[in-house]
């Protein structure tokens, strides 16, 4: 009994120290004491963020062999390599919390860990590569800029590194869209079609409306999340609409209009039924994305095995 009381007292003390640090705005580092819930929340969020970067390579990889010029192909390759790098920064940050790479990949393959819903949509035309860079990376940047101030040190440092690299992605996407909007009527229609298909899923990337988001309250309390879903979504809309208008794209939302009093855009209702349909596995590409990842992962197994065998052999010489 006495031992139990002692234990309770100690955990209470540790929690106080942790909350004090969060309150002061100190970063939490891997070896610091942290509540289980904080660790779990971070593992879930960071690993899903990592999976999103890696799965996000697929819709873009679809266009490497068909890029319209050598320059476009080089740029796209560099961008996709960056996405792989971003995945690695994030896996590296998640591993500091005690989960292994293998566990994370298993969770992805069994469906326990999700990835950003947006990558379950297909990239049908070259304009989609523009729309992905401009809108999808644009939305990701808004979220990631805010996460640079997240309370967990390794996650925050990964975000700083990623943000430095993402703006190249967004600009290359916008350049593609701007170029197509200056092109033939067919090219303009292609760009507008990509805009129409990617706009709403991009808005959904910020997650459910505040108050309907299942993980928000703890994340805000622990300063993992520094801005709400709706705040970030609004920021994204406000900076994107003028960019669309500048190159002659029409916003695919008839309710979208400038609100003078609020000093921001009002937008029409988001189709959350579609969001939940896709997130629960029934989007256009969910199965394809997962099958591809699992297949490539297993097919590459022999390379890792060979590398390890080679390293062991060298030790024995």
């Amino acid at each position: 009994m006495e031992l139990l009381e002692k234990y309770d007292k100690l955990s209470e003390q540790l929690l106080k120290t942790f909350e004090g640090k969060i309150e002061r705005g100190d970063a939490i580092e891997p070896r610091d004491n942290m509540p289980d819930g904080y660790r779990k929340h971070l593992i879930r969020q960071i690993s899903q963020h990592a999976h999103s970067e890696v799965i996000g390579m697929q819709p873009e990889g679809n266009w490497i062999t068909r890029a319209p010029s050598l320059k476009a192909k080089q740029v796209l390759l560099a961008k996709i390599q960056d996405e792989g790098g971003h995945g690695l920064y994030l896996y590296s940050a998640a591993e500091t919390l005690g989960i292994t790479r293998k566990e994370m990949i298993d969770q992805l393959h069994t469906g326990k860990a999700k990835y950003s819903n947006i990558f379950n949509y297909p990239s049908l035309t070259w304009a989609d590569i523009g729309a992905i860079g401009w809108l999808v990376d644009g939305a990701a940047i808004v979220n990631q800029v805010s996460l640079q101030r997240t309370s967990y040190g390794p996650y925050s440092r990964a975000m700083v590194r990623i943000c430095k690299e993402e703006s190249f992605h967004q600009r290359q996407g916008y350049e593609i869209m701007a170029k197509m909007m200056k092109g033939t009527k067919d090219q303009q229609e292609m760009a507008q079609d990509a805009m129409n298909r990617w706009w709403w899923p991009s808005l959904m990337m910020f997650g459910p409306h505040d108050g309907e988001s299942p993980h928000t309250s703890d994340a805000v309390k622990w300063k993992i999340k520094r801005s709400s879903n709706d705040e970030l979504r609004q920021k994204f809309i406000d900076k994107t609409v003028p960019q669309a208008e500048l190159i002659g794209l029409t916003m695919p939302d008839k309710d979208l209009k400038w609100n003078e009093t609020k000093n921001c855009y009002d937008h029409g209702p988001i189709d959350w039924n579609e969001f939940y349909r896709v997130i629960n596995g029934n989007g256009p590409c969910n199965r394809q994305r997962m099958e591809h990842h699992a297949r490539v992962h297993h097919e590459g197994g022999w390379v890792r095995a060979a590398a390890e065998a080679y390293s062991k052999k060298k030790e024995n010489i």
Partner: peptide
Amino acid sequence: AGTVHASDKKMALQNARDTYTRR
């Protein structure tokens, strides 16, 4: 800068270069 996975020193160095110094 962070971590990488590798089977030996040489691969670790190459992976570190590819992951952390693309620019």
